[in-house]
């Protein structure tokens, strides 16, 4: 029964981002050396800076146990939910020199506090509620089988902390892109058997703002403090777009469709054919590169493809597993 549970301490140096948009022309970094115990999380350090050193140090926080999503910041460049990250783990990961910064420096308002308007606008854009007639005086509930309930795949556990949103490289360069948190929210409702929205799945399939602009770097899955796996949800939204027949005829979608067509035709991927299918007449812009690749033997012409020996079997597999409507 007995668990030997010891509390240890170690000395850590914190380099903390400071900025007051009303008063400072440029941000600066303040140094704090602290004895840190094995019981502490990153939020305890933020509290100690504020309470013991400088009352003007500002950050958002509330629940202090990883369920309200207020306190996401960056530690050594990695998005982190301050109240859920133990200091021991941080030191094990990054050593005893830790840099504490807001989630997005260009959006900094004061110290760790950032202007999150873009995050909430994206959240609002995906119809973030169950679209259903609400029975105000129900005598029974909707019957949802445990299997259907599981389809949400933990997307309902997202706490809107923004860790993934401000870690996403596409959000950084494309201001129309909804971002991984909004997609996880979209998936949460699209996967709900009770939802009747006719626009949400289309909205998240539009070019620039939608799932097709995801570059699949997996950063969102890496940093999510609740293991929501936003990239997994983005993939599922891709699949849903085909299943529901709402995928638009654009280059990204044709790329996916072309993949399948190539496999059905040859059992292997015809790369040149795939580009032609995806880009259409725009393929001319790729001709110089294609020519070079061809001369170096990197691609074969469509007539030179060797079909798979088991093409029959592959075609049967594709037929039995595909639900795409395109």
């Amino acid at each position: 029964m007995s668990t030997e549970h010891k509390i240890t301490t170690q000395k850590v140096n914190f380099k903390v981002f400071r900025f007051n948009a009303d008063e400072d022309y440029l941000p600066y970094y303040e140094n704090y050396d602290m004895e840190v115990t094995s019981e502490e999380v990153v939020l305890d350090i933020l509290n100690r800076i504020k309470w013991d050193h400088d009352g003007s140090f500002s950050y958002r926080r509330s629940c202090r146990h990883g369920i309200c999503g207020a306190c996401a910041i960056k530690v050594n460049g990695r998005s982190t939910l301050a109240c859920k990250e133990s200091m021991n783990d941080m030191v094990a990961l990054f050593g005893k020199e830790l840099v504490i910064e807001p989630l997005s420096i260009k959006r900094a308002v004061k110290d760790m506090v950032i202007d999150k308007a873009d995050f909430w606008e994206k959240h609002d854009a995906i119809t973030p509620y169950l679209v259903a007639e609400i029975d105000e005086n129900p005598t029974t509930e909707n019957l949802v089988s445990p299997k259907d309930a599981q389809k949400l795949d933990e997307a309902d556990l997202c706490i809107q902390c923004g860790a993934c949103h401000y870690a996403c490289p596409v959000v950084e360069i494309n201001e129309d892109f909804f971002g991984p948190a909004a997609f996880a929210a979209a998936y949460r409702f699209e996967a709900d058997v009770r939802d009747n929205s006719e626009s949400r799945l289309k909205d998240v399939n539009e070019e620039r703002q939608g799932v097709w602009d995801c570059v699949k770097c997996f950063e969102c899955a890496q940093v999510c403090p609740k293991d929501i796996d936003p990239i997994g949800k983005i993939t599922k939204l891709h699949q849903m777009a085909f299943q529901e027949g709402v995928a638009n005829n654009n280059v990204a979608v044709r790329h996916a469709v072309g993949f399948k067509k190539s496999i059905v035709k040859n059992g292997v991927l015809d790369e040149g054919g795939l580009v032609l299918y995806s880009e259409g007449p725009a393929i001319v812009k790729h001709l110089p590169v294609a020519f070079k690749m061809f001369t170096k033997g990197k691609i074969v012409p469509p007539w030179g493809i060797t079909k798979s020996e088991n093409l029959d079997e592959i075609q049967k597999l594709v037929k039995s597993s595909s639900t795409a409507k395109f």
């Binding site: 169950l130 129900p138 029974t140 509930e141 909707n142 445990p146 309930a149 409702f189 939802d195």
Partner: peptide, 14 residues
């Protein structure tokens, strides 16, 4: 049940 109708993701029985 009203909360369920509005979308609450309750755990379910078989």
């Amino acid at each position: 049940r009203w909360a369920e109708k509005m979308g609450a993701a309750f755990s379910r029985k078989p």
